[in-house]
Amino acid sequence: MSTDQALPAGALSASADAVARRADADRRADRFFRYLVTGAGLFVLAALTGAALSMLWGGRLAFSTFGFEFLTTTDWDAVGKKFGALVPIYGTLVTALIAMLIAVPVSFGIALFLTEVAPPWLRTPVASAIELLAGIPSIIYGMWGLFVFVPVMSTTVIPFLTRYLGPLPIFGPLFQGPPLGIGMLTAGIVLAIMVIPFISSVMREVFLTVPTRLKESAYALGSTTWEVAWNVVLPYTRSAVIGGIFLGLGRALGETMAVTFVLGNAHQLTASLLMPGNSIAATIANEFSEADSDIYLSSLIALGFLLFIVTFVVLAIAKLMLMRLNRNEGNR
């Protein structure tokens, strides 16, 4: 080559040196970058572990003072310094249950409509609109619930329920009580509205993964749309549908602001769904700034720890169920 000839002998080794130095610098930079991204990855792990441990640490006073009774007693007495978490635990579970009873069938209906029934031009705009619901901040749900929905409940819905469902033999007591408007039922309905977009968008997405040939085979045998949905689509996507439901459940259990507005913050255990109650998240949000003793504060943080454990388990199940469909798909 002509350039080699033009260079003096020493320059060649100098440029080889430069290349080696460059390679060295690159290697060092590569190693540094690898450490950097690994550190950031580990930070995510540390954030979750840290959250769990810090709450366990913050709640240790409550756990050691009350022991197992923290979970089974209903006292919530700031003056007598006696705290039991049964009322908020019960409220959390009941409101989430009501929410799921409403949200699961509705979400299935929406997903079915958007994948099998609606004309194609309608599908994307309606799906986007439903997903818009998920974007509205929870405090807006809370304000709407308190100022608009609660009056409707107390003047129209609750008197109706008390009149027609109240006298029933077994379910009756659930629907007896004064028409306050705020309470477990209202909170459950607001939660249902909030989780519908999450569940329905998961269901819609997994329904779309069902191979067309499976559906078309069923149609060719003369199945109706409903039979295809119920006997082909749903069995194929079962685990992911359960995953989506658990994802919604995780949201419902941990939702704070919307519930705080409409639940009534009352530490009482009642059979009636129309009475005010409390949930774990609402108790923490309402009372954290009022906690004037160490044991009070510690009890609230212990509540947070319980909520964390429950939602962690629910969300982990959701994730595992959703992963199962992906794996099945990979095998096909």
Binding site: L48, G58, L247, T256, T311
Partner: peptide, 17 residues
């Protein structure tokens, strides 16, 4: 993914402590 759907109130308590 769990952190993505975890209740934000829990993160608030974490940073509090």
């Amino acid at each position: 993914d769990i952190l993505l759907s975890a209740p934000s109130i829990v993160l608030g308590l974490f940073v509090y402590t």
